[in-house]
Amino acid sequence: MSVNEPGGGQRSNRTLVRRLLLVVVAMFGFGFALVPLYDVFCDVTGINGKTNRVAEQADGLVVDQTRWVTVEFVGSVQSDLPWSFGPNDVKMRVHPGQLSETTYYAENLSDRAIIGQAVPSVAPGVAAKYFRKIECFCFSQQELAAGARRDMPVRFVVEPGLPPEIGTVTLSYTFFESKNQPDAEQDHSNHAKFGVDAEA
């Protein structure tokens, strides 16, 4: 048997090892590729309630006057961020396709300026892809001076394509402390992460 002999065996071993190493490298890359793939998958299916973090347009939507959808608003703050944050309206009834506006408040309870980043989430998850935010404080980072309080608007549309069995949609924001803070603000790259200027 030829493969059992030194010369030929060595060469075919080397070829096979090389191919297997390629598989290893490809799978290592695949692990990282799962990140964007997962995002694409979430966008398409709306799983996990991931919703848009950049502004969308409200154009071309027809208002469905015959149907009402209840939109609930909730807000949370991550424990290491000393802010008070929440919706000014608890809920709102809207027609699909109708442009609506509400506001959230945020107050910095500490004695230093802090930059926060709000992360939006929509429940139920399938409703996420029918929920368009036209204007939102989550598109950019928010800086609050010590003790400052601010009302921040959200303009949104629920698309008429929302499955008929969904009567209530919840819009949730969680404020996190941003990784780049005012005193260590040399690096502006994170600010522009979502393509919108921080002070917008």
Partner: peptide, 12 residues
């Protein structure tokens, strides 16, 4: 060889 690199990716 298919999944150990994925674990390596996760911990990286």
């Amino acid at each position: 060889i298919a999944v150990m690199p994925v674990l390596a990716g996760a911990v990286t």
